[in-house]
């Protein structure tokens, strides 16, 4: 469903992402890993349109979306979470989801007043269900800024789902989580996949990626150096080299 063709991004002289080809199939979980500074987050930012591309194309369902502004891409069904949490701190948990809900296709058909002033009962029901799924229902009236760290991470994820996206980009969702929280995250990612949501998972926590991803792509210095099933990627000498360095270099 999502295809990156020759994706390239240079920041001045820095080649953050260099000619990356990558495709994500409908309904799969694709893990994207790589050492620090290998360009993972830049790729996420390029997919959602935060910076213009230096070269290449981003296709969604075969349509070129490279020139669309970020908010328009959300309307087409791409949602994301942030590595450094970016919640609307002075809005309640419930309101964080309500605000994010406006762009889903099914909500776009509501008339302007209903959409911007009130919101339908069905839409409200969806929010309650999403909060239930992330075990945040009892916090729905708290300000997001007052939540504990783990809850904020869950709310980030919940907010990304509010607009019913078909593709979710998870940027290091497990950062700072303990083992139990990572277990729950693992379970939730699988349940979403079973619901038909496609997921691009960028993660440092290799165990999580190995366990949950259907396929894994590995980046190093802005280039894709490996792609395949978790076991194959793990056995790939290039990948080991990228993470551990070669014998001579070390």
């Amino acid at each position: 469903m999502l295809e990156l063709q020759g994706l390239t991004k240079h920041f001045g002289g820095v080649r953050a992402v260099e000619k990356v080809d990558l495709s994500v199939a409908q309904g799969e979980i694709l893990g994207l890993i790589g050492p620090n500074g290998s360009g993972k987050s830049t790729i996420v930012n390029l997919i959602c349109g935060l910076f213009p591309l230096t070269d290449g194309r981003v296709l969604l369902h075969g349509t070129d979306i490279s020139d669309l502004p970020p908010h328009a891409r959300v309307t087409l069904g791409i949602a994301r979470t942030f590595q450094n949490i970016r919640l609307f701190g002075q809005l309640t948990v419930w309101q964080n989801l309500w605000v994010a809900q406006n762009s889903g296709e099914q909500f776009g058909q509501e008339n302007f007043l209903r959409r911007w002033l009130g919101g339908s009962r069905r839409a409200r029901g969806e929010i309650d269900r999403t909060l239930e799924f992330f075990d945040l229902a009892h916090k729905s009236d708290e300000l997001a800024a007052n939540l504990a760290f783990g809850e904020q991470r869950r709310l980030e994820f919940a907010r990304a789902l509010a607009a019913k996206p078909s593709l979710v980009l998870l940027d290091e969702p497990a950062a700072g989580m303990n083992a139990e929280e990572i277990d729950q995250l693992d379970r939730r990612i699988r349940m979403l996949r079973d619901d038909g949501v496609t997921i691009l998972l960028i993660e440092h926590h290799v165990e999580l990626v190995m366990s949950v991803a259907d396929r894994i792509a590995v980046l190093n210095f802005g280039q894709k150096i490996a792609e395949g099933a978790p076991a194959d990627v793990q056995a790939n000498p290039l990948v080991r080299e990228a993470y551990l360095g070669t014998a001579t270099a070390a």
């Binding site: 502004p69 959300v74 701190g89 994010a100 406006n102 911007w116």
Partner: peptide, 25 residues
């Protein structure tokens, strides 16, 4: 009390996140 207003406040708090929640800055 309205989503329009909340979207405005969301944008003043986190412009990037708001844009990526489908709110046009």
């Amino acid at each position: 009390r309205t989503r329009l207003g909340l979207a405005t406040r969301a944008m003043s708090q986190q412009p990037v996140a708001a844009e990526l929640c489908g709110i046009s800055n």
